[in-house]
């Protein structure tokens, strides 16, 4: 096991306001595993990524819980200790990576930066290593001296992924890395990420709002709603047998590509505001299978079948 998140609570506070964006989240990531986390905007998935990587800045805070990464509790490390681990042992690929690159620096210098912050290597070795990285992500090494504006969106994304892999991390956290790309390019990059994982053996936490993408590519899938993980299971099982009514609703929200055209129905209503205290199950107001208990008692997150976790009163 490479990462264990334990009853993590995080969010934002200012004055008397509190936004409880991550609520009692627990999960584990095995070595080489591809974990997908799907949820709508505002469900706390990016806050979760920031909390794990120690990048949550005020007014954001981790309230309680622990994040064990290779035996160390990241939630209790100092900034400097986390900085030393970040990029070397785990790295992050952000949403809209295209804007992550500095427009006035050459591509290679930006990759060098990340490497030299952690290890001492001479220029030649640095260049040789970066060439290898470029080859890994299928970008021609003639672009080493290019500036970001000379590259297409897909290429920039590849460079950012190359940079995240530059120090051979054990875990890569990807926060909607392909959202801004075209369908075809998106599919190709995902395919490449998966191949790299198999080749290099790192684990991935892949965060996105696009469930249909994840079902096909991840090993395990966790569904987030209103700051909580409401269901987690191996992808194929989650797709074949969704247990939580929210997951079921999400699955029915995607028109299938093939088959006869027929009317589908989404999930009525909208998610609760995380700035207000939620009593009972956060999905109760939209749930078609609501019971009296749902309004008052928050359902526990339990393992219903082996490897299949769900937080819903329907399953006990």
């Amino acid at each position: 096991m490479i990462l264990r998140v334990n009853e993590l609570n995080a969010g934002y506070t200012w004055g008397d306001n509190l936004v409880h964006a991550v609520n009692d989240v627990s999960f584990e990531v095995e070595k080489g595993e591809f974990l997908g986390i799907a949820g709508e905007s505002g469900c706390g998935k990016s806050t979760l990524a920031f909390s794990i990587t120690g990048l949550l800045r005020p007014p954001g805070h981790i309230f309680s819980g622990s994040v064990f990464f290779m035996g160390k509790d990241l939630a209790n490390l100092s900034k400097e200790e986390i900085r030393r681990l970040r990029w070397k042992d785990f790295s992050i690929v952000f949403q809209s990576s295209m804007n992550v690159l500095n427009p006035v620096l050459r591509i290679k210098d930006q990759i060098f930066d990340g490497i030299t912050a952690h290890v001492n290597v001479d220029k030649e070795e640095l260049l040789a290593h970066t060439k290898k990285l470029f080859k890994l992500v299928n970008v021609s090494s003639e672009f080493l001296d290019a500036y970001p504006h000379q590259l297409s969106g897909g290429m920039k994304q590849r460079i950012v992924i190359a940079s995240a892999l530059s120090l051979n991390p054990k875990l890569v956290i990807m926060d909607e890395p392909t959202t801004a790309l075209d369908v075809v390019v998106q599919r190709i990059i995902l395919q490449e990420i998966d191949e790299l994982r198999r080749k290099l053996g790192f684990s991935i936490i892949f965060i996105t709002h696009d469930l249909s993408l994840l079902v096909e590519i991840s090993d395990t899938l966790a569904i987030m709603y209103a700051g909580r993980i409401v269901e987690k299971a191996p992808s194929a099982e989650l797709y074949a047998k969704p247990m939580h009514p929210y997951t079921e609703g999400l699955m029915n929200s995607f028109p299938p590509l093939s088959g006869k055209r027929k009317r589908l129905h989404g999930i009525p209503g909208h998610p609760p505001k995380l700035s207000e205290e939620i009593k009972g199950c956060p999905f109760a107001t939209r749930c078609p299978k609501k019971m009296p208990i749902c309004e008052n008692i928050s359902p526990p997150y339990i393992e219903v079948e082996k490897g299949h976790f769900v937080a819903c009163h329907l399953y006990k």
Partner: peptide, 19 residues
Amino acid sequence: KAAPKPEESLRPERLVVGE
């Protein structure tokens, strides 16, 4: 081919194309 279609197969075929 590039569109997700889990209803057909959970292991999509590989895309090979210039982008």
